[in-house]
Each structure stands twice: as C-alpha cells, then as structure tokens.
Design a protein around this nucleic acid. Structure first.
Lengths: 201, 201
DNA sequence: AAGTATCTTAACCATTTGGTTAAGTTTGAC
DNA sequence: GTCAAACTTAACCAAATGGTTAAGATACTT
C-alpha cells in the first residue's frame, strides 16, 4: 500500500486544526507540515494540493457537524424528551469540537454549493423530524408552530453561542471570559426548557 | 483639506463590500480599487495600508451591528412589547445588512481582543436590560430565567439564520433557496412569539 | 542482502500581493 | 494664470507562498 495510515492521520489532524483556526486563505501549508512534524514535501506527497486537502477536511467537518446527532433522535417517543436528548447530545458534541461551527459557517459561506452537494450525496434529510412535529401539533400535544421555524430555533439556540463566543463574552458577560464555560454548562438544561416552555400547551 | 470626502466614502463603501465577501485574508487591495473605480496608488494615498483600512471597516461594521438597536428599547414599558420591538427592529436591520453578522463573527474570531476594546471604548453595556429582566422576574411578570440566557437566546434566534443561511437552506429547506426570504419574512413574528411564549407565566 | 515504500533535506521556481516611487495630468480655488 | 490638491499611469520591489525536483537516508518486507 502506498501510504502510512498513521502519517496520513497525523496530517489530517493537524490540517483540521490549522484550517479551523485560520480558514482556507489564512492557512499555510508549512504550518500544517510543522504541526504534523513532517516536511512540506511529504505533505504534497500525501495530498497533492491545498485545495484537495481542504476538501477532505471540510467534508470530514461537515459530516461530523451535521448528521451524527440525528441518530439520537427517536421519533417514536415523547417530543419533549426528544428535544432534551437532541439538545444535550448536540451541545455535548459542540463542546468537544468548539471550532467546528464557525469553521463550517465561514467556509460554507464562501462556497455554498459545496454544502448542498455534500448534503445531497450523503442522503441527509430532516423531513421525518418535520413530520413528527406536525403530527404532534395535529394531536394537540404542542402549540401550532411551523416545523421549519422550530427546527431553526433549536439549531440557533444550540449553535450560536459557539460561533459568537467573543461577542457573547464581550456583550453579555461584560468581558468576563471565565464565565463562558459556566454559561455553556447551564445551557443544555436552559435551552431545552426554553424550547419546551415555548411549545407546550 | 487633504481628502475628497466623496472619494474616501467611495473607497470605504467598496472596501466594506469586498472585505465582507472575502474576509481579510481573501481580500485584494486591487479588488477594492477596482470596485471604487480608482487605482491602487490612490487607495494607498487615502488609507496607508490594508490593516489600517480593515480596522476602519470593522469598527464601522461593529458599531452598526451592535449598539444602534438598543436605542429602540424602552425599559420602562411592557417587557413583552420590548421584546417584540427589539426583535422586529433587529431583524429589519439585519435584512438590510445581511452580510454583516458573518463578517463580524468571522473576523472577531480571528482577533477577539479588538471587539473587547471596541466595546469598552464605546461604553457599550447591556446591564440595564439585565436589570429590567430581573425586576420583571421578581415581580412575577415572567418566569424565572437567567437574564444572560434570555439575552443570549434572543440574539441567537435573531442572528443565527443570517450567519448560517446556506446551512438553513440546505438542511431545513431541502435546498429550496427561494423559500429563505419567506422564512425571514415570518421570522419577526415567530421569534418574538417563541420567546414570549417561553417566558410568560 | 536486496529492494521497495516512506520520509528528509534543501535548493529552486513562478506567481501573487502589499506596498512604493516618480513623473505627469486634471481640477478647482484664489 | 498660478498653484496646490486630487488623481492617474506604469514600472518596480521584496516578501510570502504553493508547489516541484532530485538526491539521498531510513525502515520494512521478503
């Protein structure tokens, strides 16, 4: 076989860090090589070009960011528990990968078609969640709210603090950075309750 | 006097567009000059360097993005009306400047200290809103919720759709881009009601 | 021991880009 | 008409950067 898997993963690990921190244009191939403790020649030996490498990285990030958590969802059960489970699992995942949201949002804004293609080829779809929401509205379990907006609200509440951390610290926490982690700690419960209080009858 | 105000503004207008679209690293001075229909020499004649120009642009963007809407808030009045007014005014402003949120979030992540400094020198502060929220909790007008989280939730719900437009289109709207504007249309009412339903007793 | 894949060293190249310089032209105020 | 400020043209430069090349060293497999 042509490549050493360890090395290849070492490179990818380094690349994801550097790309996430600096974006595509801000990233230097040399910086990736340095972080992976190899040289630039080997970097090009494994991944032909910056673009190729970046494409692999962003696919990995998108796949991590998007579909995994949906598996948590059990559309058969109680919608309130569903919300609690989703919010909890998603915020947990984001705390483990705090740079991913801004990375994706940033790079996806530069090239929106890429995301659309990725979503299509991965067969990703949330229609089953929308259907579940509509069913529970019809059954009178929750208030009448557009499923799209409920989904968007949920994602907004989960993701936004991670993309806007400096803003949150600066505006809401009066610059006291150390309070941010505590805020995130509370957030799993607060967000779930906020949503549930809003839609329950 | 040394500078022609028209020219200087033509440059700033062009610069804000280009920077917003491409970020600091993705922006070429030549592109700004082209858009302003002047030449690169004149660009440096007006603004010494890319960094200087960028600093001016980001200050303008931050000042537009952050404090203006707070003036809408009348802390004397009904908190529910206050929420409706704020959400409505803020979403209106964002629709007029849809690229500002991702620009700020993106560049502020690259240099968080800059935002903190800007906020401090501008004397920006939201404590009076937090106090109002706490008062209304104590009076039993709204549910017990941390003022910080209520503020953060409100900002998340308003801003997130603008920074994550491609994601929203791809994931929630199944790629049907034309539905996005309609979603935004509905959002002023939906968000306000969502928050109010969540906190009212 | 031989051979092959992995990895390093180091020099090199083409291009891009922020920024400069210098000379000249246009324009408007007095 | 004069003079200075505003603006253009065009050539230029140094540094950074993505990418290449070639020769050799190291290690693994058989």
């Amino acid at each position: 076989m042509k490549y050493n898997k360890d090395t290849s993963e070492k490179i990818l690990d380094s690349a994801i860090d550097i790309f996430q921190e600096n974006g595509f244009n801000g990233t230097r191939m040399q910086a990736i090589a340095d972080k992976a403790k190899i040289n630039k020649s080997l970097l090009h030996y494994y991944f032909k070009s910056k673009d190729k490498l970046f494409q692999i990285i962003i696919e990995k990030a998108v796949k991590l960011f998007i579909p995994r958590v949906l598996k948590v969802i059990n559309v058969e059960g109680d919608i309130f528990q569903m919300i609690r489970d989703f919010v909890s699992a998603y915020i947990d995942m984001l705390r483990k990968n705090p740079h991913i949201p801004s990375f994706i949002i940033n790079e996806i804004n530069n090239n929106p078609e890429r995301l659309l293609k990725l979503l299509k080829t991965s067969g990703f779809n949330v229609d089953f969640v929308k259907v579940k929401i509509q069913e529970d509205i019809d059954k009178g379990i929750i208030r009448d709210i557009s499923p799209e907006h409920l989904l968007l609200n949920t994602l907004s509440l989960c993701i936004f603090p991670f993309v806007a951390k400096p803003m949150v610290v600066g505006i809401i926490l009066n610059g006291e950075e150390d309070k941010f982690e505590k805020l995130l700690d509370e957030r799993k419960k607060v967000v779930a309750n906020f949503i549930i209080d809003s839609i329950k009858i």
